[in-house]
């Protein structure tokens, strides 16, 4: 048989193509899979919880860092002493840093100077979970974007994917940099990413997140966004609110009253 390799591959490819065409004709499901549109709706699913938070920036004023201190203590967040390797779960950003795409033209100067409380948004469409190669970070059944520290390999793809800078990396062993060890939550080890977990360890016990409890001004409201009768939903209906970078379509679960 005088047939060179190139000729053979050409014809074999044609055969495979013919097979593909025949299969598509025989099994129409293979040619075009029907799209499952149930995942597209953002209407609340009955019986399903979606935890959310509302930050009232009118009440969250001044240099108060009560919630930050409490959260970082309870979750054994290390303090490495310099901003380059800073680990943060909840922190304060300038108004224009928190809402970079919001219009600031002729805005009330008092508002522009506000320090806005920022934390993980626990997005409905989280870009970080899609970037994670090990599924260490994932969307939980209750809307919380969680990190399974056991599985994190420290690749930091999620940090690159997060549009809100909510994730921090442990460049060093965090243990020696924790001022006072708290037994309410484990620490992390060197080489893992960490972030706010909406206090899932407290929710399990039926308690509100540490930041919400520690706020003396009651500036933080926490609740189930899928429950139309929850306090947070009533607050959202009664006030004009904002989300961070809504144009990205991540559908954050953290809302702000300006």
């Amino acid at each position: 048989m005088s047939q060179n390799r190139r000729e053979f591959l050409k014809k074999a490819g044609l055969g495979a193509l013919a097979g593909l065409g025949a299969a598509a004709g025989l099994f129409p499901a293979f040619a075009l899979e029907p799209t499952d549109s149930s995942g597209f709706t953002d209407a609340p699913v009955p019986g399903k919880v979606r935890w959310g938070m509302l930050v009232d920036t009118r009440k969250c004023l001044g240099n108060c860092t009560e919630c930050i201190v409490r959260c970082h203590h309870d979750h054994n967040v290390p303090d490495f002493g310099h901003t380059k390797s800073e680990v943060k779960w909840i922190w304060k950003s300038g108004y224009e840093n928190a809402f970079p795409t919001a219009s600031t033209q002729f805005q009330n100067p008092e508002v522009l100077e506000r320090q806005v409380l920022t934390l993980c948004n626990h997005c409905t469409e989280p870009p970080c979970t899609k970037a994670c190669p090990t599924e260490a970070t994932f969307k939980r059944w209750d809307g919380i974007v969680s990190i399974d520290y056991h599985r994190c390999i420290g690749c930091r793809f999620c940090m690159a994917a997060c549009p809100y800078g909510s994730r921090s990396f442990n460049w060093q062993d965090p243990r020696p940099h924790i001022k006072e060890l708290s037994n309410t939550y484990p620490t992390r080890m060197r080489g893992v990413v960490e972030k706010c977990n909406f206090c899932s360890e407290r929710l399990v016990k039926g308690e509100l997140p540490a930041c919400v409890v520690s706020c003396a001004e009651n500036a933080l409201t926490f609740g189930d966004l899928n429950d139309p009768n929850s306090e947070i939903r009533k607050m959202l209906a009664a006030n004009e609110t904002m989300q961070r970078k809504p144009e990205l379509g991540t559908l954050p679960s953290v809302f702000y009253i300006i």
Binding site: K11, A12, G15, A18, G19
Partner: peptide, 20 residues
């Protein structure tokens, strides 16, 4: 073996690859 049978053999090979 003529050209046509060669073609058939190659086609069959491609098909079997696809089925596999």
């Amino acid at each position: 073996m003529n050209k046509f049978s060669q073609f058939l053999v190659a086609l069959a090979a491609g098909l079997s690859v696809f089925v596999a």
